[in-house]
Write a protein that binds this DNA or RNA. Structure first.
Lengths: 180, 180
DNA sequence: GGCGGTGTTGCAACTCGTTGCATAGGTCGG
DNA sequence: CCGACCTATGCAACGAGTTGCAACACCGCC
């Protein structure tokens, strides 16, 4: 088994960048890190519990004003070692696994107009994402050439998201034009 | 639930194009359809059994020379209806879910050289895939402008794979150059 | 005739992630 | 104070995919 249990590692990365509670992690996963790794709060809570059991993170209860207490998790030395170990292991190149591509290929066997509608909806979605990513780049990384270390990596990954969204837009637009 | 149980539908698509046995489907899924939807033979057999139970496919035992018998599956009218129904339903745009992107972002917390090696390995893999896809395009769809129907869809999806691989190559190359 | 290799099918256990629901503390408006 | 709503955490059941293993048939080789 080369690469399972990746959510653990995604959480380690997030907690290395900034210790947080389960809910804060959930919110962060629906933003920056979530752009290439999503997770629900239930899954996050479960995995945090397991990571605590494994000694990868330490927990501290934090009282808050006007809200319930929260548990803030921080990465331990053991967790950092696990992360470093995982980073050095190979990652298999995964295939696309795209339901939309499947539908595009299958359109002959159903209502093509309906499939085109599905494609249009997805295209609009990718346009929205691209715009969001580009705004983030403009706001947080106005001059990429000066970046180093963590910030550089964050920028490069975000930029990869931009490239991917542009490709989706190109692809889906071609499909729609071919069936116009 | 909008879009689960997609392997059923991937199999329906494959069987619409050509009836086949479990093993033939497995091979096909490691080729053309597998470029954007992968599955192991165990999963395929299990799902075929379920689809048979649901009346989506019919089975016929076929004797072979020099080999064990095989069960050839074909899509029934009920299966075609299920496929058409699924085609018309919306498909959520999924996020990337890329382990490699996670490692690129996390390189600060481990051995950067090791991460760069992982990236290089993946880059070589994407180069190989791109070459394979382009060979397929050149061999099977030398003149895309004349295609229609099923063949056009097949070409467009394969071409999308080409676009995706090129994007990965661009992305990973940028990452490596930024850390050169 | 036994032995290994390949084709073909399949079961069982496990992991991962989602969905639905539950609990408990707190704020705010009527 | 009651109800609606938000924050924060969590359980249980399920769906889906992977991994490991196994059974059986048929081939060719020694």
């Amino acid at each position: 088994m080369i690469s399972r249990m990746a959510l653990e590692h995604a959480l380690l990365v997030a907690l290395c960048e900034q210790p947080a509670s389960g809910l804060e992690l959930t919110k962060r996963f629906s933003r920056s890190i979530g752009y290439f790794w999503s997770a629900t709060h239930q899954q996050i809570y479960r995995v945090l519990g397991r990571m605590d059991g494994d000694g990868w993170v330490s927990v501290s209860e934090v009282a808050q004003e006007g809200r319930p207490d929260k548990k803030v998790y921080a990465v331990t030395e053991l967790g950092r070692a696990a992360l470093a170990d995982w980073l050095a292991q190979p990652t298999e190149t995964q295939s696309l696994r795209s339901e939309l591509a499947l539908k595009m290929r299958a359109a002959t066997w159903g209502d093509r107009g309906a499939v085109l509608d599905v494609v249009r909806t997805n295209l609009a979605d990718h346009h929205a994402r691209l715009e969001r990513y580009e705004q983030l780049v403009a706001r947080d990384y106005p001059d990429p050439s000066i970046l180093t270390g963590l910030e550089l990596d964050q920028y490069l990954v975000l930029h990869g998201g931009v490239l991917m969204e542009r490709t989706w837009i190109t692809w889906l637009t071609e499909y729609l034009e071919a069936h116009a």
